[in-house]
């Protein structure tokens, strides 16, 4: 039960290869962090796994079935995607945007309303429920879309495990809400959801991910437990950064301190 990409290759333009022979497996219940410099291919890989881009070579399979063979609505009940940017031009209310996440489901208004309320509570949006999406801050808007994708995969599905792909979900969040985000992510992972997230902050990756996948120039450099991947050498080689790595004083993970 997994979301698998095998030997993926993505060419965006002649001579511009975004992803070069990358294989990745996202298992149910695990949190996998994609790390790497800007332009390393993190978003491209995420877009391949979500079916947004079609690979020039290789194949993405959701529960053993090629992602392109899934009927849209069935796939949407199992796989939710949070893109990096949002371009909502129309003055929806917060609760209405979150409710869009329930479109693939036919669970009825009462159940949908309950899930929307819970998702908003989880993302600390309950007070903003009736606010216009244009009147709130960028970070609040990011949480609205997070609540929307969480509402989309809220309940377990008979077809199999659910997956959640998040592209830089923490980018515009303050420290408190970054923690809220990752606690929500861990909570979904405990319920069997496989989460893949693109993240720039290596300490967030170290603390909350079960596994990290390091990308550099469209290639997968290495994958493994944060403590095994996030070493002084790899960070220097692939991020061009001198750091100190020491055990985290409160958690069982490495702590990366840049010089």
């Amino acid at each position: 039960m997994s979301l698998v990409g095998e030997h993926l290759r993505l060419q965006l333009a002649p001579g511009r290869i975004a992803i070069d022979d990358v294989s990745v497996q996202l298992n149910a219940g695990e949190v996998l962090a994609l790390i790497g410099q800007n332009g390393a291919g993190k978003s491209s890989l995420l877009n391949l796994l979500s079916g947004e881009h079609v690979a020039n070579a290789g194949q993405v399979r959701l529960h053993e079935k090629p992602i392109t063979d899934w009927p849209g609505e069935d796939r949407a009940r199992l796989l939710a995607v949070l893109p990096q940017q949002h371009s909502l031009n129309f003055a929806f209310r917060v609760a209405e945007v979150v409710a869009l996440g329930r479109y693939p489901h036919g669970t009825g208004k009462r159940r949908d309303d309950a899930i929307v309320a819970e998702a908003m509570a989880l993302c600390e949006l309950s007070d903003l429920a009736q606010r216009n999406i244009h009147e709130i801050s960028g970070g609040e808007r990011q949480r609205v879309h997070l609540a929307r994708v969480l509402a989309q995969i809220w309940d377990a599905q008979p077809e199999g495990h659910r997956f959640l792909l998040l592209d830089e979900p923490a980018a515009s969040l303050d420290l408190h809400h970054q923690q809220m985000l990752f606690q929500a992510v861990r909570r979904f992972a405990r319920r069997g959801v496989g989460v893949l997230l693109v993240v720039h902050d290596l300490n967030l990756a170290a603390r909350y991910a079960d596994r990290v996948l390091l990308l550099d120039h469209g290639r997968a450099v290495c994958t493994g437990r944060p403590a095994d991947v996030l070493t002084i050498d790899t960070i220097y080689t692939h991020f061009g950064l001198s750091v100190t790595v020491q055990p985290h004083p409160h958690h069982d993970c490495p702590l990366i301190i840049s010089h």
Binding site: E73, H86, L88, L100, Y103
Partner: peptide
């Protein structure tokens, strides 16, 4: 009305919500 609402989020979001 549903796919059009989803489309207001963007084309990719509309597809991620299961619409063609």
């Amino acid at each position: 009305h549903k796919p059009l609402n989803a489309l207001l989020l963007g084309e990719s979001e509309c597809r991620h919500l299961g619409f063609q």
